[in-house]
Structures are given as C-alpha cells and as structure tokens.
Design a protein around this nucleic acid. Structure first.
Lengths: 150, 150
DNA sequence: TGAATGAACATAGCAAGCTATATAAGGCGC
DNA sequence: GCGCCTTATATAGCTTGCTATGTTCATTCA
C-alpha cells in the first residue's frame, strides 16, 4: 500500500529500516535480544573480546549510542566489560556464555528477515540493491567530509 | 569505509537511513525543524488540514509516534490542533503560518540530501533503487500479515 | 619531566520509533 | 435507546539514535 505514491529514496530507506527493525525485534524479543544489539553479537560471537572503540567502528554508530547499548546488554547479562590490560582508559567487551548460546538463534532470525525482504528480488537484483545502497551510503558520507560541496 | 565488508541488506538499509536522518537534521536544525517532522510538513503544506489518522497513514508510522511528533511541533509553534467539527473524537491539524513559510526551505534541504545520496547513481539506477526498496518494503510488510509464512 | 594534546569512555539530554493500554466518542444491532 | 464493538487520540514506558560535554589515561614534545 501507498507504494504507488511518489516517495523519495530517503523516505523509502527510512521506511524499510523501520520495517527491518520491527520484524527483527519481534523475533528476537523471546530471546531477550533487540535489533540494536545485533552488531555487538556479530562482532563478539565466537569468544572474541573487543574494545568499545572497535565495536563503534564495526557498527558505524556514535560512541555514546554504543555505550548505552552495552550498558543495557550488561544489565541483561549478555556481555561483560572487563578492564583492558593494555590501556587503562579502555574496556574489553565479550559475550557471556548465555549470550553466546543465543548467537546462533540471533543469526537465524536475522537471516530469515533478510530473506523475506529480498524474497521479491531475483539473485542479481539482490546483489544490486546492496551495491546501490553502498553507493548511496558513500554519497551521504561525502556530505559530512570537509571537501564536499554540502 | 567498511563498505567492502559483507553486510546484509538490513544492515545497509539501517545505515543509510541513519545517514539520511543525520544529514537532514543538520540542515533543518537552523530552521527549528527535524527529520521526523518531514511527512507532516509534506502532507500539510499548502494550507491543508488533516486528522491525525490521515497523517499516520501518510507517514506509515504508528499512531503514538505521530502523536508525540505533533505534540513537539505544537510546542514549537509549527502546527495547531483544532477540534474536528465532524467527529468530536478527532482533531484537525494544520501548519502555522510560520511553519508554512519554512516549508519551501524544508523541501529544498531534503531534495539536496536526496540528490547527494543519489549522486553516484545513474538515472536508471536511481529509478531502480527506489523500485527495489519498494519491493523490499512489500516483502517486509508481508511478514506481519496473517497469511505469511513468517 | 611536565604541559599540552589526543583518545577512550561515561553522562546528560533530546528526538523518533515501538508496544501496550486507557479514554472518549461514533455506530450498530436489537 | 442501550449495550457493544470500533475508531481516534492520548499516555506510559522502553530502545535506539544523535549532539555536546566531562573525565581519565596515554602520548608527544619541548
């Protein structure tokens, strides 16, 4: 519905992002996991321990956003923060065994949502939509760099 | 950066949506307008008065989200709510003259951000990315309908 | 070595999105 | 006309995202 209206790329991207998050949150809720925690799961699963800084880079979000997400995950018993022996400013973050157990189900759920989103696209279209989104991201990131026209 | 990593469609869509919102918010901040208010501006500019329900349908967001956005816009003098003479449950919402004046600038700013996002795409690619996003949205919406496999 | 600069993380405060639920009015059936 | 269902809006409570700023430690350089 309403897809016939003339909608900008920005509107469509925002809409799709909200639908992704909703679908993922609904599936992950029984696991006690939510959409904002996905990059942390993917970065840390398998027993890896990373600094907050590394997680920020991986997730491409701002540092305070990651700090808040990690605080919630710590509260919920999904991660542990322990001091970084190499840098006393920093912290090493790793999944708890309970979270590690759920990591596979998290991956399954997100794969299912991605598959549903791409179900109406052919194989080359699935590749292409990712490529086009990546180019849009590049264009948007160029807006913030000093050498951009703005 | 990091675009070389293998990222899912969902991740890329979320990332692009955040970059859109950030770029738009930065440009609209001097006008006292923010990204969540865009659909309200577009739906009401030109002197139209709509119910909250119509705005919810137009923006494709949940009703409480729209209610909160309207409360902020009312607080900031961008809209007025007045009783709907045809339905005493409801409200008619319209832009204030001050907001109406800003509507053209809002459109200019959002067009600029969209253009920047699409700058790296050819004309057919710009059409195609919208079409592919629309199909992804359809696929995601099908997840919530009862006749879907889930 | 000591001061300045920078980097890592935390905190405050806000917008925008969601679900769940309450309230009030319209509409319908009988 | 009255009870019942539906529809319109509001409220509460939460997550995720942002900017701005503070604190603490590391690094650099004079």
């Amino acid at each position: 519905m309403s897809l016939d209206r003339d909608r900008s790329a920005g509107y469509l991207v925002n809409w799709a992002a909200r639908l992704f998050a909703r679908a993922i949150d609904r599936r992950l809720k029984p696991l006690g996991v939510s959409s904002g925690q996905l990059p942390v799961f993917f970065a840390l699963s398998g027993g890896r321990a990373l600094t907050q800084r590394a997680l920020v880079d991986f997730a491409a979000i701002e540092q305070p956003t990651m700090a808040a997400t990690l605080t919630r995950m710590e509260r919920d018993g999904l991660i542990v923060r322990r001091p970084n022996p190499d840098d006393r400013r920093g912290v090493l973050i790793s999944l708890t065994p309970e979270a590690e157990v759920r990591a596979a189900e998290v991956r399954t759920a997100t794969d299912a949502v991605n598959a549903a989103a791409l179900a109406g696209l052919g194989p080359e279209e699935q590749v292409q939509v990712r490529a086009l989104l990546a180019r849009m991201i590049s264009g948007l990131e160029a807006l913030d760099t000093p050498d951009a026209a703005g």
